[in-house]
């Protein structure tokens, strides 16, 4: 944490931001190389990366980075992403995203939508990692299991890829002031009151802005 900034709240730790970008970067690179392997018509991706053989290994190594950063992210955000009773209300009102909702319960560190994104990435990420491990050497597994691995790998990518676009939109254009939290860690006080009222109150009760965001 680099000192205190006037009117700003320190939301994420350096560790959180690093793990976030490792997870995001490896996921995106694996998606890019995976699409390059799945769509023959997109062989410009392979051409750019040095051919399909090279791209296969890049896909595998980005998968390894993804697996480790997914483990790190799960440990860091597990507690934050447990559902609480207020989340039901948030979901009923769609978080105020689709129609006006003035009486949303004050938000925790993450809202119900973010939690859903976390659990989606967690569950389908695990399926992707396990099926990917099977696909690395399918010959040592029963053929039915190996075939399911290829199918589930693609199915899970379909889910995560769609959620990723939502995440990208809501983390940037959809919610001004959010993206910087994952770069330098700071958000305006107004932002935190609006999005994370409960979290801000609890944190200030515990010892003010100087305390590290967990």
């Amino acid at each position: 944490m680099s000192g205190k900034k006037e009117g700003m709240v320190y939301v994420t730790t350096l560790q959180e931001r690093i793990v976030h970008w490792l997870l995001a970067g490896s996921c995106l690179f694996a998606l890019l190389t995976g699409l390059g392997l799945m769509f023959h018509s997109w062989d410009f991706i392979a051409a750019l990366l040095g051919g399909h053989y090279a791209m296969k290994w890049m896909h595998i190594f980005s998968g390894v980075v993804f697996a480790f950063s997914l483990a790190g992210a799960s440990v860091m955000w597990w507690e934050h992403c447990k559902f609480v009773p207020e989340d039901a209300e948030w979901v009923k009102k769609a978080g105020g995203y689709l129609w006006d909702a003035h009486d949303l319960p004050p938000g925790g560190m993450y809202n119900a939508g973010q939690k859903m994104f976390f659990w989606t990435v967690f569950i389908f990420g695990i399926i992707i990692v396990i099926s990917g491990l099977i696909m690395f050497n399918p010959l040592i597994f029963p053929v039915t299991l190996a075939r399911w691995a290829y199918m589930l790998h693609a199915a899970s990518v379909m889910v995560i890829a769609a959620f990723f676009i939502i995440h990208l939109y809501l983390g940037t254009f959809g919610n001004p002031g959010t993206v910087q939290i994952m770069f330098h860690g700071w958000a305006t006080r107004e932002y935190c009151e609006f999005h994370k009222g409960k979290w801000l109150a609890e944190r200030e009760k515990k010892g003010g802005e100087e305390s590290q965001a967990a």
């Binding site: 379909m158 676009i165 959809g174 001004p176």
Partner: peptide, 28 residues
């Protein structure tokens, strides 16, 4: 799953853009 990976991403991107045009950014 292969075609729907792209269809899904495209549909969601379109929905996000529509949301931005209709509802605008989510702000106080």
């Amino acid at each position: 799953f292969k075609p729907f990976t792209l269809i899904g991403m495209g549909a969601v991107a379109g929905a996000a853009m529509l949301h931005y045009m209709v509802r605008g950014p989510h702000e106080p």
